[in-house]
Design a protein around this nucleic acid. Structure first.
Lengths: 151, 151
DNA sequence: CCATTATTGACAACATGCTGTCAATTTGAC
DNA sequence: GTCAAATTGACAGCATGTTGTCAATAATGG
């Protein structure tokens, strides 16, 4: 194990890259049977968990992604009948995204499998370690954002 | 804070996605002045830290990326004069990648700035928390890899 | 030694993130 | 109310990851 704390930050960064790749790969395996992917599943989650229809721009802000990245995913999900776009009474241009019934069913099925997988993963992990990991990653993200040159 | 340990796994996953994005954005800011990027910097690091020239396939395995992803980055880095490909006495097809002098200089300059940033980030983090975070993420990655269907 | 298998690089297609630009619309300052 | 600024969707282009296929080369088993 590294002794310098700043070298540990570097190790943490590399570990994050690995974990990110592993999570996306696992998510793709989980969602592929439904014709979906990790990215589409995440967008669906943002819509479903909000509890109300959202605009594309709101979804992007919630997820920390660029507006246009989400826009394309939503366009594709609409073509596939996973989400529908309702007229927004408060904004003629920004329609509201909601899951279709088909989308809700697929999302529920995927979440059921994900929770089973998460429970199996949790077997080998302890709550204190997880809490520490989440805290450290939040610090890392916040610190990186703060240190970056403002736009 | 979540109480169910498997919900904490979900939270950890979302936190990893955020941290990954923040790290790439910070790395891009750090490397842009040298005409590089996070991805190219990471490949350079894999070559430099190996201590000896590597083949493209070896770099990919070390980084946990697909062979062809690294191949393209190396091709571009070669065009830019950051790496050079030497003939491999043991393999007529798989040439050996090494940093050029220019590449070494750029890498050293970037690493100097990265270490300064890491030290600043480390100021607000504690060694025990970092260790726990690294351990949890390694468990997560290993668990995800193990749970996925074999190819 | 020879035949089969695995590895490797080249090429191509695609998914998902980013940015930039433009017009339509909303918001806000005055 | 009006005009400037911000927000939004459409469109386009690029970076970086993936996969698949093919031919050249290495490695292996007989």
């Amino acid at each position: 194990m590294k002794d310098n704390i700043d070298e540990m930050v570097t190790t943490l960064a590399l570990t994050v890259f690995r974990a990110n790749g592993a999570l996306i790969a696992a998510g793709d395996s989980l969602t592929a049977p439904f014709g979906l992917s990790s990215a589409r599943w995440q967008v669906m989650g943002a819509v479903e968990l909000a509890g109300q229809p959202l605009t594309v721009a709101q979804i992007a802000r919630n997820m920390g992604l660029a507006r246009q990245s989400v826009q394309r995913l939503i366009d594709e999900l609409e073509r596939d009948g996973i989400v529908a776009l309702d007229e927004n009474p408060h904004h003629k241009r920004a329609r509201l995204v909601r899951l279709t019934l088909h989308g809700q069913e697929a999302y529920a099925a995927i979440m059921k499998e994900w929770h089973a997988m998460a429970a199996r993963l949790a077997e080998e992990m302890n709550a204190a370690g997880l809490r520490a990991a989440i805290g450290s990653l939040e610090q890392l993200s916040a610190g990186l954002d703060a240190l970056r040159p403002p736009d």
